[in-house]
Design a protein around this nucleic acid. Structure first.
Lengths: 120, 120
DNA sequence: CTGTATCCTACTAGATACTG
DNA sequence: CAGTATCTAGTAGGATACAG
């Protein structure tokens, strides 16, 4: 996401461009409610993500102003990630969507199983 | 989206898998609030979309149970698309996100401009 | 009018190895 | 610990032509 697709046509369009993709929802979820995590911790909270993808997504979210990156000049290095105020407002706006997903999870999982089956 | 990425880890993860991608937000927006549109009308409401992509996304959304497809056996053919009840609940859950996008549109557009510049 | 079929490209994302 | 670099595979998405 965030690939530059021409002017946004509505707020939803713009917002999905910011939160969409395979990893960003999980990152937002991991940093939920003021939580602060180090790079390694965050990685463990997002199962299956590679270092490269995690960095890439974090950098995009940082540039979008929703993630804050705090570097401690120590040895060994320590970097902490958290949501900015804007990020918190985004997470608030995502709450109903998350609840919707929880509520209809079964149906969505079933549909997903079909798709995997088809591609096999 | 909807590519089969293993089990969902949270509701937000599942929901974004359903609404994510380049076109689905615009389709949901076009069918907002009980609106019913024919294929050609819908296409005009989603600028730049190809026939192939529009069909593909609609089929996925139909399979996910959020879009209803009504075929009229006439000549020339006529097909109408609308949201199901589940689709309407999804749109309701997306409302805060759409508002968030509207509110911060300027910032997001600016960030988007940077990205396009970089890739040039 | 509403789709299908085919081919093609660009980008997303994974694996692996390496660095301050 | 927290990244970076490179190489590669898979997939989203686009162009075009055709069909019921």
């Amino acid at each position: 996401m965030g690939k530059g697709k021409g002017p946004y046509l509505c707020g939803l369009d713009a917002a999905v461009d910011v939160v969409g993709g395979k990893w960003k929802p999980l990152i937002l979820w991991a940093l939920y409610a003021g939580r602060t995590l180090r790079f390694g911790e965050l990685r463990r909270h997002v199962p299956g993500v590679s270092e490269k993808m995690l960095i890439q997504q974090l950098r995009e979210m940082e540039a979008d102003g929703i993630v804050h990156r705090e570097v401690y000049r120590e040895v060994p290095p320590k970097v902490e990630y958290s949501l900015t105020e804007l990020g918190e407002t985004l997470n608030k706006a995502l709450e109903p969507l998350g609840l919707w997903g929880d509520k209809h999870m079964e149906r969505l999982v079933a549909r997903q199983a079909e798709k995997i089956e088809q591609s096999a």
